[in-house]
C-alpha cells in the first residue's frame, strides 16, 4: 500500500495539496468576484502502477473535479500533480498533448460523451488521429481489434452512437480510452448510468483490461459497493477534502471516520434478512454547500460524534497505522460498531 506522503517511482499519479477554487461572481453588468467555491481544497493522493484507487463521496464533494484536475481539465489553483514523475501542473496546452497518450478518461454518461455525428470507427480512431500515431497494421485494423477487445462487433464500425445501447456506448468510450495504451485512466462514474445487469459487464471488462495492460485506474464513484469491488485502495471525500484513506480491506472492515461509517451503513444490501439486521446510522441534513462550508470540521454539522472542538478546529489527515489515514478528532474505535 502506498503511503501518500512518500514519493515512490512506482506511483503513476502523485497529487500534493491540490486545490481547485472556482471564483463566484456577482450578477450585473460589472461582475465582481464575491467568493470562492473550494471544490478541491488540499487533496493529496498516490496511485501505484497497475492499481486502482477508488475515490468516493456524495455529489459536490469534489471527486470529479479532482479527477479532471489530474488531467488538467480543471484549472489548478495550487498544489502539484505529477504523472509518472513528471510535474504537469504548469504545462501549456501544447506541452500537454503528448501527456494525453499516457492518461485518458472514461465518462459517466455514454450518451453525451460520444459525438452523435461521428461513426464508431471515427470516434475510436480519434486518439490515433490526434496524436499522429500509426499503429502497426493501420488504424482501421487497430479500431477493429479494439472493438473486438471491448466486446463490440467490429462489423458495426460504420454505425452511429444512437444505434447502440447504453452499455455498448460505454464500451465505445472504453475502446477510445484504451486506444493508445495509456498508463492511467480516470473513470468518472463509469457504471452509474447503466442498468444493473450491464454494470457488472462493464466492471468485469475494466478489470480484464487492467490485468492485460497493467493500467492504473482512478475510479470515481458514489457507490461504495462498486468501489469496494474494484479498488485496492479507497479515499473518501467530503466537501473538497479527503477525510479517510486506507486499503480497501481496512476501510471496509474498520472505517475510522464517522462519515465513512455512516455512508456504509446507509447503503442497503440486497438481502432482506441481512438488511434488517444491519446497524444503520442515518445522517440528518444534507451535505453543506461548498460555497459556505461550516467552520472547523466540515462534517460536524451532520456528525453523530461531534464535540465543541470539531466546530472550531479543522482536523488534519493523520496516519493511524498501516497507511490508514483519517481526518477526525474523534475517530471510530475498532471494531467500529458502537456509534456512541
Amino acid at each position: 500500500m502506498s503511503d501518500p506522503t512518500a514519493t515512490s517511482s512506482q506511483d503513476i499519479v502523485e497529487v500534493d495539496d491540490l486545490r481547485v477554487h472556482f471564483p463566484v461572481r456577482s450578477r450585473g453588468l460589472f461582475p465582481r468576484v464575491i467568493g470562492q467555491v473550494k471544490a478541491v481544497d488540499g487533496v493529496s493522493l498516490r496511485i501505484p502502477s497497475g492499481q486502482t484507487l477508488g475515490l468516493v463521496g456524495e455529489s459536490g464533494c469534489g471527486k470529479s473535479t479532482t479527477g479532471r484536475a489530474i488531467l488538467r481539465l480543471a484549472p489548478i489553483t495550487s498544489g502539484s500533480v505529477r504523472l509518472e514523475g513528471r510535474d504537469v501542473t504548469e504545462l501549456t496546452r501544447q506541452q500537454l498533448r503528448p501527456l494525453r497518450r499516457e492518461a485518458q478518461m472514461i465518462f459517466q454518461d455514454p450518451f453525451t460523451s460520444l459525438n452523435p455525428r461521428q461513426t464508431v470507427g471515427t470516434i475510436i480512431a480519434a486518439p490515433f488521429r490526434i496524436q499522429g500515431v500509426e499503429p502497426p497494421g493501420g488504424v482501421a485494423s487497430a479500431v477493429r481489434e479494439l472493438m473486438d477487445r471491448v466486446g463490440l462487433n467490429p462489423e458495426h464500425v460504420n454505425r452511429y452512437p444512437n444505434e447502440f445501447s447504453g452499455g455498448q456506448r460505454q464500451r465505445i468510450g472504453i475502446a477510445r480510452a484504451i486506444a493508445l495504451r495509456p498508463r492511467l485512466i480516470i473513470c468518472d462514474e463509469p457504471v452509474s448510468a447503466l442498468d444493473v445487469s450491464i454494470q457488472a459487464q462493464i466492471l468485469n471488462l475494466l478489470a480484464g483490461l487492467q490485468d492485460e495492460f497493467g493500467m492504473s485506474y482512478l475510479f470515481i464513484a458514489h457507490d461504495l459497493a462498486v468501489v469496494r469491488h474494484v479498488a485496492q485502495r479507497v479515499a473518501v471525500m467530503y466537501l473538497g477534502r479527503i477525510v479517510e484513506s486506507a486499503s480497501r480491506d481496512e476501510l471496509f472492515s474498520a472505517p475510522l471516520h464517522p462519515y465513512t461509517f455512516a455512508l456504509m451503513s446507509a447503503i442497503p444490501v440486497p438481502d432482506p434478512v441481512a438488511q434488517a439486521a444491519r446497524e444503520r446510522i442515518v445522517l440528518s441534513g444534507d451535505p453543506p454547500s461548498p460555497l459556505d462550508p461550516p467552520p472547523g470540521c466540515a462534517f460536524h454539522t451532520r456528525c453523530f460524534k461531534a464535540q465543541d472542538r470539531c466546530r472550531s478546529d479543522a482536523p488534519a489527515l493523520r496516519e493511524m497505522g498501516d497507511g490508514h489515514q483519517v481526518a477526525c478528532h474523534f475517530p471510530m474505535a475498532e471494531p467500529a460498531t458502537d456509534p456512541h
Binding site: S197, Q199, A200, L224, A225, H229, D249, V269, P270
Partner: peptide, 9 residues
C-alpha cells in the same frame, strides 16, 4: 451481478 457491500472482497 450486483457487487455487495457485505460480500467477499
Amino acid at each position: 451481478s450486483v457487487p455487495r457491500l457485505d460480500g467477499a472482497y
